[in-house]
Amino acid sequence: MSDGDLSVSADRLSRVFGSFVAVADASFTVPRGGVTALIGPNGSGKTTLMLMLAGLLTPTSGSMKVCGFDPVTQNYQVRSRVGWMPDQFGMWDSLTAREALTMTGATYRLSAEHRALRASELLDLVHLVEFADQPAHVLSRGQKQRLGLARALMHSPQMLILDEPANGLDPRSRIELRGIVRQLADTGTTVLISSHVLAELDEMVDDAVFLSAGRTVARETVRDARLSRSTWHVRAIDKDPLVNWLEEIHVPFALGADSSVSVNISGEENAARFLRDALAQDISIVEFAPRGGALEQTYLQLNEERR
């Protein structure tokens, strides 16, 4: 990929706070457009990495380009192209949702007409039109989160950095958030998102960067992750014929609590063949699915490696 197709290219980034190494050696790229996830356990350096990309923190060493500019030497250019939503952000409580957006527009030096127009547009996008003139302190957590997202979008950034945007949201708000993020990506905005909720990322992201103890340890497209899943969950109406058949063909399995079994099958091709064979044996299968999300297995494998 050429540089023009990349929204982020980071090379051996590190960041040290005193004696604490937050980011040790992070090298990765984020392609232009689409949604890329930044995945890692708590304290793996996701937030620090995002702060550096947003131009708020200088790296101790290493180099990076964000939207074609260096956040350290060309800070202004980066900030004008990047929208950033921190994991714990505050709202100006006494301002209404609309005012919060127009004030943010002012901080990005947008003209007054543009601000008003953009605010209305975004309130519509994040489904807050009916709360437009309510002060922020009456908004629920999910609504505040959406308002925070709209605030990060005020200056129509080329790239959006979302740090744990789904944190503390109820399922409905999460689904809404997912819809908005997908919609943004489809209209050409690059989205870099970090989250703990891996199952949710499966359905939202195109690409994932794995971070462990401040290092980028793996990179995977969701498609690849799907292909390499190895544990499958199978449940039949009556478990005995299934268990007997598995023993007959010498496939190792683990019996689950709800009379389902877990089988190790490598690759989706083999999984499809397994299902065909099982059905040919007249076993009444009602559930057949990969165990865990696509990204979850990679994540867990990484954690195992660490031990």
Binding site: L56, Y76, R79, F89, W92, T107, Y108, R109, R151, H155
Partner: peptide, 9 residues
């Protein structure tokens, strides 16, 4: 809310 202002222009 400070970081929001710092990240702006």
């Amino acid at each position: 809310t400070l970081a929001i202002l710092q990240a702006s222009l």
